[in-house]
Design a protein around this nucleic acid. Structure first.
Lengths: 330, 330
DNA sequence: CCATGCGCTGTTATCGCTAACATGACACCG
DNA sequence: CGGTGTCATGTTAGCGATAACAGCGCATGG
């Protein structure tokens, strides 16, 4: 910086002013400084700037280290949004969403003096870990606990699940079964709620829940059971991969989809249109979630950790071929 | 830090020594300092440390902003490995792998004074962008150009493709068709090479290449063509999602897999075991890639940018149900 | 018994930057 | 025409750490 100042024939402070877009610099001086910067290929040292300002143009993201479609889409979307806002993104991924892991990831970020923190915290234990967080750090949780005080962005799981269930009921099915995600995930719980609500609203019988996790393997197991129950004509699975496994089990046992069994998934993974048959599903808008999350975070950053907001993103219904009226009606 | 020093009754330098594990600190003093640190909940300021040492315990990763299985698995694996090595990870993702985007992402990282850079650079344009990089920054490319000077970690695409093709030939197929990925990706090119090599080695006819990208949609189009060609009995697709689309097209047109057509994919996505039928595929070990990449990078960091190495990870063959001998033999 | 060296600790300078204040030139106003 | 702002710029201090050096006490050896 001193070199730049010397070359431009000004003081280092003036260089700093140009860098930070201060007014009160003569146009001509500004140009000289710019030229010197370009000539020397100078780039400001962010560590020094962070040190003196106490701010860091860095947002931390705590995410689950997995290739689950939802979390990894979110991560990508956040990076994108942050980069556009001029923030760098530091990622600390955790193997499991338990208290210890999350706390560790948060610590690592605090060491780096992140300006704010986004925690993709879809399970209860994550929320607990955040309660122990030092206050004063801007924080946004994604898919976290609605009953906690933090700023929160979520996909409206309940509405999505309701829409999926209602679609099946409207097609004429007497009731709808549900293969659920891991019970400690809020996403999974919300989808169960929405499913129940829709059934109740329609006065339909509420069948037992088929518990699973997010994997195709669990969907396959669920499908093996479903295939043996002739009365099951409609299934809503908590995500698309479960649906894939389910479809496969039904196929193996000769239960045709959608003629005998209708299926609706959740997520709209890119390949859902190529399942056998193409899967009707619910599509959350991850870009919107990320954008809203970052906006919330940056608002806190500039206000000084005020006003934790709440944003709920409505998912869309994507209709393909895996839903049909039950045989009795067709 | 001054507070800690005061509480422990020592100078700030001694605190620093304790923090950095220097010898020449009396055990008793060390304990007093530790206690003071714990009591005050003190955490060192990395910005200050980075400023004075010129080092930053930060590695940058440039990745494609996508939910493609390979890149996103790699990203996750890198975070994991870096965290274990005590490094924070800053991610700059790019929408497209063109020169400008990559250069921008690299710049953003250099601004942050990353200690080293990992670029997941599976296309030619990425390599070009890196040629313009200021020298002296430790750099590792993943799946990049084998002809460039940078340190490089790759999955052995050629060997994987050879194994896939050979498996099909060994099952008795006269030849094997290939649905390829985007031609500018090294991964895709390597898989094409391996396929050709295996055919040539077996003296089999080399059918025309069916060009595609990585998507299930392209696999579906390819499948619509394959289904119309009765002589095609074996297809190797450049990834699992292509295989999914292909399977679906074959299914629609009544071509049974594996009885009439055998299929092998590449990647072993978690749900591949639940395709219809379960997909035989090639599994790259992304964790190994990440570990090797990070090792290479850290070696450069400590040596001061010496010895760009080269590591090739051998993928495994995962055998499931999508391969069978051709009808003429069964 | 003093020179020497080692182990432990403190003092000072410094990294690159921004904030706060100081300065000088000039314009404007009563 | 002197007082008072305002603009453009320079000077100084300090952010929180580490590096380099200095100093002190004590054991060792000739």
């Amino acid at each position: 910086m001193t070199d730049v100042a010397r070359l431009a024939g000004v003081s280092h402070q003036t260089v700093s002013r140009v860098l930070n877009g201060h007014p009160n610099v003569r146009e001509q001086t500004r140009l000289r400084v710019r030229a010197a910067i370009a000539e020397l290929g100078y780039r400001p040292n962010r560590a020094a700037r962070a040190l003196v300002t106490g701010r860091s143009q860095l947002v931390g993201i705590v995410a689950l280290n997995s290739t689950l479609y939802g979390p990894s889409s979110l991560l990508a979307a956040f990076e994108q949004a942050a980069a556009e806002a001029g923030f760098a993104v530091s990622v600390a991924s955790v193997g499991r969403l338990d208290r210890r892991s999350i706390a560790g990831a948060v610590e690592r970020h605090l060491d780096q003096r992140v300006a704010g923190l986004v925690v993709i915290a879809p399970v209860a234990s994550a929320g607990e870990a955040l309660d122990e967080m030092p206050a004063g750090v801007p924080l946004v949780t994604v898919d976290g606990d609605p009953d906690r005080a933090h700023a929160l962005v979520t996909v409206d799981q309940v509405a999505g699940a309701r829409a999926a269930t209602k679609l099946l009921l409207d097609a004429g099915h007497r009731t709808v079964w549900h293969v659920s995600g891991p019970p400690d995930w809020y996403d999974a719980a919300g989808r169960v709620d929405g499913w129940r609500q829709a059934l109740r609203a329609a006065g339909a019988e509420i069948p037992p829940l088929i518990p699973a996790d997010w994997s195709a393997a669990a969907g396959y197991s669920a499908g093996q059971m479903v295939a043996r129950m002739p009365e099951v004509t409609a299934v809503f699975t908590a995500n698309d991969h479960l649906a894939l496994g389910l479809l496969r089990a039904l196929y193996e046992r000769g239960r045709r989809v959608p003629q005998e069994v209708s299926v609706v998934g959740f997520d709209d993974v890119p390949e859902a249109a190529y399942f056998i048959p193409p899967l009707t599903t619910i599509r959350p808008d991850f870009d919107a979630v990320a954008q809203a999350g970052l906006d919330l975070l940056l608002a806190q950053v500039s206000d000084g950790a005020a006003a934790p907001g709440r944003v709920v993103i409505e998912p869309d219904l994507v209709i393909r071929d895996s839903v049909a009226p039950p045989i009795s009606l067709s």
